[in-house]
Design a protein around this nucleic acid. Sequence first.
RNA 1: GUGGGUGUAGCUCAGUUUGGUCAGAGCGCCAGGUUGUGGCCCUGGAGGCCGUGGGUUCAAGUCCCAUUACCCACCCCA
Length: 413
Amino acid sequence: MSTLAAIRGFKDILPDQSRLWRLMEDKARDLALRFGYAELSPPIMEKTELFQRGIGEVTDIVEKEMYTMEDRSGEKITLRPEATAGLVRAVLEHNLCEGARPAKLFCFGPMFRYERPQKGRLRQFHQFDVEVFGDVGPYIDAEIILLLHTLLSELGINDLQVVVNSLGCPSCRPAFREKLTSFLSERQSSLCPDCRRRLEHNPLRILDCKNEQCRSEVMIGPKMDQFLCLSCKDHFQLLTTVLTQVNLNFRIDPLLVRGLDYYTRTTFEVHSGQLGAQSAVAGGGRYDGLCSKLGGADIPGLGFAVGLERLFMLLSQADSPKESGPDYYVAVLCPEALGPAFELVQNLRARGLKVEADWESGGLKSRLKRADKASAQRVIMLGPDEMAGGQATIRDLSTKQQWNLPLDQPQRY
RNA sequence: GUGGGUGUAGCUCAGUUUGGUCAGAGCGCCAGGUUGUGGCCCUGGAGGCCGUGGGUUCAAGUCCCAUUACCCACCCCA
């Protein structure tokens, strides 16, 4: 039992969940294509350095959550903890963003982080990831948020909140950061231990601390929007105007910050109240400095990721469609019928029909029960009488009508 | 990494407080009966070293310790 169990935090996607997973992916793919995005699937492993430089050395992800190993040549490689770095690498490596036209890309796939599993958080989890390179916005920012929102609403998810914010850029954020740090340093005593630690290396994270005390301090402290430089301010202003124009329901949250280092300006998240503590189904933002940080040209970027397991949780609370049953279930009622049945089944499948059968003969009762479980439309019965007459008995399970057809004429079924 | 909860049949769980017919129920599965040849109903059957390892005791699913897995929360994030 224990040796045969899946790895902690890694989960099977079982047959009765597959339909919904496919529906989710199909919808996301269709929509991305409709919005003019192209699919690019990067490998799930990259050189460790890519993530160290892209995500940031001091983040939790890089410090303690990556699945990193050496390959046989001694090179350090890592199972991707997120998709953006790999996509940036691919865009730079293949020069996908030359000229005026931005590269608009998306991908699906598993991500890996060594964290303690809980509701909505696994060690291997799946994301739908969308990225744009080479467009400074803010219209593209609005478009990508709209894409995300459209996806969720077309999947029938209501009761969700879209929050947006601007984190400023390298020319205005440092001033805010300094002011915030000095403000909070004076009030260290009323901060929680975690936040006192954050004060050192990541003061912006204090903004989204859930602790009551910390929240009330943050409320009266300096806000990013007062520090935005003129161009960041215009950028954000225009973004919110456009979103309002298309009637997208969102909320501005000046306290929204993101965990990964590379974000600039626009950030956004989508939350649902039905997910437990890990309430974010999707999150993303702009990362104008990332490409050059990774050694490429100074290409602006923007993107988001949807947590598919979390999305799945929201979807399976609604009615989940079942896999449709086969057109025919073949009930083999005596051993002599196995051969002819096998041939018939292959012929019917070759015609494109969905056919199921069990390759051992059994009693009529148990076979009919199997057909019922499989939600088959019709049963083809092959017993001694049918063998003698060269005809199969067909029974329609909903109308209960029965008729015969020659075994050697599969085209008539 | 830190806390809390839970591990008993394939699945969902009773039983643990007050050690001694406690190895159970429902569903599922198998066989048979009834039903127009399946669905409903009836009868019977298979299937569990009660997570694992120690300890206490005449006696442990039940008490104690350890360990492991899962779940939830913190942290972090999708």
